[in-house]
């Protein structure tokens, strides 16, 4: 999904504000409450894995994504998923919020889909590492090119690294595929690799002497003989 969350390489977000070095984990209690709410999904079936949860956050209002802060984003994702699963209604939340000081025109981060949602599947095992019988397709030091295709849902291939040439520097075994798992389409485990890119291969104005690495799933990657590639320079 080419969403607001896919921030890598975007321009115009200003300088990094480091704030107070002693700032606490949770500046306000509600932030800890939201952090704790991220555990209710499995109890009520609204989400059972990180991938669904993350995609819930990615689907919130883009304006809220940039202005509500990290725990505000999580709140939007949690509300989205709880409403889609029928655990609560937005009307209930809004009524309760208005009663304790919310304003009618407050921006609400959650954007739940009207049609509910994917059937929830329980994880096949703890964590996200799995096993597979077939060998990894790419060896270390192999050159690859990433797919240039955007996908409508959740993915772990950022837009800035689509259609780019890189090198396999590590194989991490087999992991649940977030792109399917986020949508209730099963774990479909795949080999996972660390791919290193030269910054100058990612951006025309990339800094020299910079390498950017991403952990990418096998189906994002194409084998890399690019002698006839139109992109070859």
């Amino acid at each position: 999904m080419d969403g607001i969350h896919d921030l890598g390489g975007k321009q115009g977000h200003g300088k990094v504000d480091k704030g107070q070095p002693s700032a606490r984990n949770f500046a306000e209690r509600w932030q800890a409450a939201v952090f704790t709410m991220s555990n209710v999904g499995p109890k009520c079936g609204a989400w059972t894995n990180t991938d669904t949860f993350r995609h819930g956050v990615e689907r919130i209002s883009p304006t809220a994504y940039l202005t509500h802060g990290y725990y505000g984003r999580w709140l939007g994702g949690i509300e989205t998923l709880l409403v889609e699963a029928g655990v609560v209604t937005q009307k209930e939340i809004t009524t309760r919020a208005l009663a304790i000081g919310a304003k009618e025109n407050d921006l609400i981060a959650a954007q739940p889909n009207k049609q509910v949602a994917t059937p929830i599947k329980q994880p096949a095992a703890q964590g996200a590492q799995r096993s597979l019988n077939h060998a990894p397709k790419f060896d270390i030091h192999t050159q690859i090119r990433t797919t240039n295709q955007s996908v409508p849902g959740h993915t772990r291939l950022p837009a800035y690294a689509r259609g780019k040439t890189g090198t396999v520097i590590k194989h991490h075994g087999v992991w649940v595929f977030p792109d399917s798992n986020a949508h209730g389409e099963g774990e479909q485990p795949q080999h996972l690799y660390t791919i290193a890119f030269r910054a100058t291969d990612l951006w025309d104005d990339g800094e020299h002497g910079v390498q950017v690495s991403l952990d990418l799933f096998e189906s994002y990657l194409h084998a890399g003989d690019y002698s006839n590639d139109i992109y070859q320079q």
């Binding site: 509500h68 939340i93 000081g101």
Partner: peptide, 22 residues
């Protein structure tokens, strides 16, 4: 000065507590 997200989080928290989820 409570932010809208702080208030909405509290509203959702109280609903989840009533449902026994939190």
């Amino acid at each position: 000065e409570s932010s809208p997200q702080a208030i909405r989080a509290e509203a959702l928290e109280s609903l989840l507590i009533e449902r026994g989820l939190l």
